[in-house]
Simulated scan of single mutants.
Amino acid sequence: MQDRIAVIDFETTGMSPAQNARPTEIGVAIIEDGRIVERYQSLMNAGAWIPPFIEQLTGISNAMVRSAPPVAKVMGEVADFVGSTPLLAHNAAFDAKFWDAELGLLRRRRSQEFACSLLLARRLLPEAPSHKLGNLNRWASLPDTGKAHRALADAEMAANLTLLLASRLRERYGVAEVSHAYLCGLQKLSAAKVRALLKA
């Protein structure tokens, strides 16, 4: 994959900004020329309480975010770091909601589309027993990037998965140019249409 893509992952206090959930950590892995070339990671303090079950899942405690930089500072930094680079996340519907909500609080707006490695994996790796990120990572024998449910580890996992999907498109299906725009188009098709397209 030649395209420069920013693969992002949020850890949060809940499922949706619509339910007053806020981010606690963000990780970004930028891929270009078939590898991860840059990274960004930070905890952030949005003044939101982390429920015990989320703390258990992520290992991110209320004490950790209390001493973290303010959410506005982190989101401003990460938005500048990403710039107009195309975006991708695993289950992008989740991360895009937080990205848009937090940028909105800074009176900023993204201009680029999100690709989704979850949707793409369902279409291109139908034989995988599970399409959860950690399970896919183990099933495909991708590099161990660290503790799951930490933002940078998950962003790197999704980045490695995206590179695997791109190589499968090239090697198995002969797709010469695997761009971010191509991935965004592919994820909008049904699994049956993707199979038909790639056999053509």
Rank of each mutant, 00 (worst) to 15 (best):
I5Y: 02
I8E: 11
P17D: 14
N20G: 13
A21G: 12
R22G: 08
G27L: 01
I31Y: 05
E32T: 09
R35S: 03
V37G: 02
V37P: 01
L43K: 11
L43R: 10
A46S: 12
W49N: 09
P51A: 11
E55Q: 15
A63N: 14
V71H: 04
M75L: 10
V78T: 09
V82W: 02
G83S: 14
H90G: 05
A92I: 06
A93D: 11
D95N: 09
A96G: 02
K97A: 13
K97W: 02
L103T: 07
G104D: 13
L105Y: 10
L106S: 07
R110G: 04
S111G: 09
R123Q: 00
L124K: 06
E127K: 10
P129K: 08
G134Q: 13
L136A: 06
N137I: 06
R138Y: 04
W139V: 06
A140S: 00
L142F: 09
D144E: 09
D144T: 07
L152N: 00
M157V: 01
M157P: 02
N160K: 03
L161F: 06
L169Y: 14
R170N: 12
V175L: 13
A176V: 01
A176R: 10
Y182M: 06
Y182K: 02
L183S: 04
Q187G: 04
A192L: 00
A192C: 03
A196K: 06
